[in-house]
Write a protein that binds this DNA or RNA. Structure first.
Length: 409
DNA sequence: TCTGGGGTCCTTCAGCTC
DNA sequence: TCTGGAGCTGAAGGACCC
């Protein structure tokens, strides 16, 4: 077995060649939530396990490979997953534990190279070009990471090694589970072109259907289609982007510390709600949560949006840009309530509401305007004082009066 | 079968200014 | 004074990702 396919399962594509310019690694934990949940439950290793919400409307967050073999996959409704795998053990997610393991893994990556771009809790890109002299070739560094993640966190991960982010990401997917795949630069086209179009980053269900209708089934088909045709079919940005990817061209560097652009909370109710007062109470709580997150992260936001999903799953959003950015829950609530009321919904059954704030900036650098009728030492300072109480006595220590007693839903 | 929650990015359209 | 086009911004929706 060559070094580029360490511990790769049988039947996987092999790509031999030099890895000297393949300095981008994509590291992806295998069935992350399920693997972390099984660390404390060793007796469940090798059995079908599903991690997911226990509510009436939960979806699968993660599943072990034994459960996946039964047809279960992430984002699948739990009701369907239980039917497909009635023998599977269902575990409630423990987000605190996942966040802690994620912090440890990201710190491990940081000891390899300072250029780490986390994509989510369980995956990241690493640019190891500055670590080669200290740690060896990119493939060797990938092996080192896999060994350290396993030894220190008792979970497995897969690593893709390539000269671009996009190819590294595809390689880690092909290496799963518990493998490493390096794609030499001169073999990128051989690797890419047989893949189905859905393998391309950014091609989901709808776009794949669209492409297949055009007779484009593989990445090679995309590559051999005039870029103007793709731009007409998918729009100029997406068409051009897909064509570039199909030839393995992806100039995006690994970017550490990309700032967040928006922040929000949303909630799906256990049962659809049609009472405007109850909806208002949920909006108030969500606005309060979003404002608290903004203040904790030292940010303010300028555009406030409300999201409403109806019983038939159709969704609409309404947004409003404020004259000055805010991190005040009351101001966010007033805005989303105004947006919601302007929809004029009369006894319409609602499944979900969400509150989001966009156009984020550092609070320290953003001028703040007093709210209408607000005095210095007013609403914001009251909310900051509430933050302090909550930090000391728990999130439920202080709540708006109308939220005392949980809203229905 | 019946669809969570947290995000990003793109497209389209409308309104505004020059 | 009116009109049309370019460019910008905001709003809304959709697709996608993990």
């Amino acid at each position: 077995m060559s070094r580029s396919q360490v511990r790769r399962p049988s039947g996987r594509l092999a790509f031999d060649g030099p890895d000297t310019d393949c300095t981008i690694l994509h590291v992806d934990m295998d069935a992350f939530y399920a693997s972390v949940s099984l660390r404390d439950r060793p007796h469940l290793h090798g059995t079908p396990v599903i991690v997911g919400g226990g509510g009436t409307r939960g979806v699968v967050l993660s599943a072990t490979y034994e459960a996946r073999a039964l047809g279960v996959h992430s984002a699948m409704p739990m009701s369907r997953a239980r039917r497909l795998a009635p023998q599977a053990t269902v575990i409630e997610p423990d987000h605190q534990q996942y966040a802690e393991v994620s912090r440890n893994v990201m710190a491990l990556f940081g000891s390899i190279t300072p250029i780490v771009e986390p994509l989510s809790l369980d995956e990241a890109f690493l640019d190891v070009s500055g670590s080669l002299r200290r740690l060896g070739s990119p493939t060797r560094i990938g092996e080192l990471i896999r060994a350290r993640v396993h030894d220190e966190q008792q979970i497995t991960c897969s690593v893709g090694v390539a000269s671009t982010k996009f190819v590294a990401k595809l390689a880690s997917t092909r290496a799963k589970p518990d493998g490493l795949l390096m794609i030499p630069t001169d073999r990128v086209i051989d690797f890419l072109h047989p893949l189905p179009v859905g393998a391309l980053w950014g091609v989901g269900e709808k776009t794949e259907e669209h492409l297949v209708r055009l007779g484009l089934r593989t990445v090679g088909d995309i590559a051999n289609t005039p870029v103007a045709t793709l731009e007409r079919a998918l729009g100029p940005a997406s068409g051009h982007h897909l064509h570039e990817l199909s030839w393995g061209r992806d100039p995006r560097p690994v970017r550490p510390d990309e700032p967040e652009k928006s922040l929000g909370n949303e909630e799906t109710f256990a049962h659809d709600i049609d009472d405007p007062e109850v909806i208002h109470a949920h909006l108030l709580r969500l606005a309060d949560q979003v404002a608290g997150r903004l203040r904790r992260s030292g940010q303010v936001g300028r555009t406030v949006s409300v999201k409403v999903r109806f019983a038939d799953f159709t969704t609409l959003t309404r947004s409003r840009t404020l004259t000055s950015p805010t991190d005040v829950g009351r101001e966010i609530y007033d805005t989303v309530r105004h947006l919601y009321d302007a929809l004029g919904l009369e006894r319409v059954r609602i499944r979900l509401v969400g509150v989001r704030v966009e156009g984020l900036a550092a609070a320290a650098e953003a001028p703040r305007q007093l709210l209408l009728g607000e005095e210095e030492g007013g609403r914001r300072e009251a909310e900051v004082a509430i933050d302090t109480l909550r930090a000391r006595f728990g999130a439920d220590a202080v709540r708006p009066a109308r939220l005392v007693g949980p809203p229905e839903g």
